[in-house]
Each structure stands twice: as structure tokens, then as C-alpha cells.
């Protein structure tokens, strides 16, 4: 239930969307791009979102693209997580998506919404971090393509009026050995205590985490420790955990020290599964 009113727009093209945004912004409507709408609707009810206009991007063909090209995958930002799971173009993303919310909700939650929303777990960002995906972003000045990671500092740094159209993933990266695990406080549905995603390329492990900090992250320092085969696994993991960004979440899902305990175990599981436990 959205207690306040807003106007709903459903542009058919990128330029229509950005132009609408600019016009509504000029009118003081503080518009929002609208993907699945699940967060906009539920947070409106709690007075955590307020807008006078939403711009639904689901009718924009580019946002709904799902192309498996020769070199790269193109994943439209307005694809629902369930659609991505079913098409399964990027198995690691499928695994991450599959653990978000619940199946029915994932019929609505979009990839772009999960990554750009306020709810800070943004778990589907993790596979895109480690696959070093690009983001295609549209805005008042046209369309740009950039490395997703470069633009993600705790959250995706979008300019006013910008929205994510697509993600582009290197096809080779999408087929690399990988690891995903999500641990919750209890049970099989719910926010993560810790979610870990990893991918191994050319003998090097890339790792990203959600639930540990109030933002998902991939950190060069953490990876350096994880990949430091000169040291025993236990030390590598401890050093990696020590290098996690701060603050460590300490909330109703779990305390900070428990989260670190779980994260360390998941790192160990990950190294085990990716065959990277030995010291050289």
C-alpha cells in the first residue's frame, strides 16, 4: 500500500525515459526509475521512499535484453531474477540470484533493482564484481559503458537521472570455476548473515562478500591475502578477514564477531572447493 500518490510512466525507449526524468525532475516530482517496484512500494509504505512520479523501465527493449553473444553476455537490468535463473546464462549469477528473497518475489525483483536499491545486501552485485562486468548506463548525456566495479563504491555511483540499462559479462568469465554460498541466521529464506561469491581465473581467486559490511564489496587487499600461497590457509584466511572493510555489521541478523567467524569458515570452504588450499 502506497499511502501517497505518484504518477506512473512507462516509456518505450531509453531516450524517452531520460527525457521524462529530466522533465519530471524540473517539475519537482523527484522521479524514480522503477524496475520491479518491490522496494519502491514496500518502502513507501514505511515512509522510507517518497516520490511523485515513477518511470517504469520494463518496456524499454534494451533493459529486457538477454543476449548470449560470441564474446559477451548482455543482461538487461529490468530482467527479473527468476528470468535470469531460468535462462541461466551465467551460472554464478543464477546461484546468487536464487538465494535472494523468495521465488515469488524474484518473479518481480529485477537485477537492476537488486543492485541499485536501498536494501544494502545487493547480492547479485557479487557475481558481477568477480566477473568484472561492465555496466551500460543511460542518462541525460546519453549512454556510457564502464567497469561496474569502478563505479561501485559501497553502492553504484549513478548521476542524477541515470539508470542502468544492462550489464555486460565476458562470456569466458561466466564459465570459470566458481563458488557461492549464503548463510543466514537460521533457515532458508531471508537476508544473509554472510554471502560469499568467488571465481577462479588464471589460478587467482576473486572473491566478493555481502552481509559482512553494510555494503557488498570486493577488495584487492582481501584477495591478495586469500591468494598468498606462501602462507598456510589458516593465516591467509585470518589476514583476509582482518582486511575486510569496516564497519562489520552488528545487527539483528548476527553480531560482528559471529559474522567474521562465519565468513572465515566460508572462505575456507571456498578455497577447499576451488582447490586452492595448499600452501606452495
Amino acid at each position: 500500500m502506497v499511502p501517497f500518490d505518484f504518477a506512473y510512466y512507462r516509456p518505450q525507449s531509453i531516450t524517452e525515459a531520460t527525457a521524462l526524468f529530466a522533465a519530471l525532475e524540473r517539475d519537482g516530482k523527484r522521479p524514480l526509475y522503477y524496475g520491479g517496484g518491490t522496494e519502491i512500494i514496500t518502502l513507501s509504505r514505511l515512509n522510507l521512499v517518497r516520490t511523485a512520479a515513477v518511470i517504469d523501465i520494463k518496456a524499454i527493449p534494451e533493459c529486457r535484453a538477454l543476449d548470449v553473444g560470441h564474446d559477451s553476455l548482455v543482461l538487461g537490468a529490468a530482467l527479473s531474477l527468476a528470468e535470469l535463473e531460468e535462462a541461466n546464462p551465467f551460472p554464478l549469477l543464477t546461484k546468487a540470484a536464487r538465494e535472494v528473497a523468495d521465488r515469488t518475489a524474484r518473479n518481480q525483483i529485477t537485477l537492476g533493482g537488486n543492485i541499485c536499491g536501498q536494501i544494502f545486501y545487493r547480492e547479485t552485485a557479487l557475481p558481477l564484481f568477480v566477473a568484472e562486468a561492465d555496466a551500460i548506463i543511460a542518462g541525460p548525456y546519453g549512454i556510457r559503458q564502464c567497469r561496474f566495479l569502478d563505479l561501485f563504491h559501497q553502492q553504484l555511483q549513478l548521476g542524477r537521472g541515470e539508470f542502468v540499462v544492462q550489464f555486460k559479462v565476458d562470456r569466458a568469465a561466466a564459465t570459470l570455476p566458481h563458488f557461492h554460498r549464503k548463510r543466514r541466521k537460521q533457515g532458508e529464506v531471508g537476508y544473509p548473515l554472510v554471502t560469499i561469491v568467488a571465481l577462479k581465473k588464471d589460478g587467482t581467486v576473486r572473491v566478493a562478500l555481502s552481509g559482512v559490511c553494510p555494503f557488498p564489496f570486493r577488495s584487492a587487499e582481501v584477495e591478495a591475502h586469500v591468494n598468498d600461497r606462501s602462507r598456510p590457509v589458516g593465516e591467509r584466511i585470518q589476514a583476509a578477514v582482518d582486511a575486510f572493510p569496516r564497519p562489520i555489521l552488528h545487527d539483528i541478523e548476527g553480531s560482528a564477531d559471529y559474522r567474521l567467524f562465519v565468513a572465515a569458515q566460508l572462505l575456507e570452504d571456498m578455497l577447499g572447493e576451488l582447490g586452492d588450499r595448499e600452501t606452495v
Binding site: 537460521q186 532458508e188 529464506v189
Partner: peptide, 14 residues
């Protein structure tokens, strides 16, 4: 802190 079914989670199917 958890007056919602999102964060107060009863047992589910399965």
C-alpha cells in the same frame, strides 16, 4: 528491532 516478517522469520515450507 524486528517487527516484520522479513526479519522475524517463522518456519517455512521445506
Amino acid at each position: 528491532l524486528n517487527p516484520q516478517l522479513r526479519t522475524y522469520r517463522p518456519i517455512r515450507f521445506g
